[in-house]
Amino acid sequence: MTAFLVIMLLILGIPLYAAWKGEHIWSKMLAFASIATKAAIMILLVSVQRDDWMIGIVGVIILSVGNGALMLLAQILRRLRDVANL
């Protein structure tokens, strides 16, 4: 189980690197969306490993409310671009 968590941490490094390096705004958005999902799943696995369902509830809540903030941000970016192009 710990091995799984270590592998997950390593994989989580890829979108972090992409977000840090990404020169393109949409690549950054994609990387952040990916980080959000991966972190929630990691919380679930941590809860299984420690056998503490309280932590798992947090992961479930994160997954079920989703990342509406990113959607809003995407809409704002699109609007900004439309306004700038006028």
Partner: peptide, 15 residues
Amino acid sequence: ALWNTILGYVLAYCS
């Protein structure tokens, strides 16, 4: 499944 798919659609539409 729902949120990730809809987020994909919104990001595709906006980008």
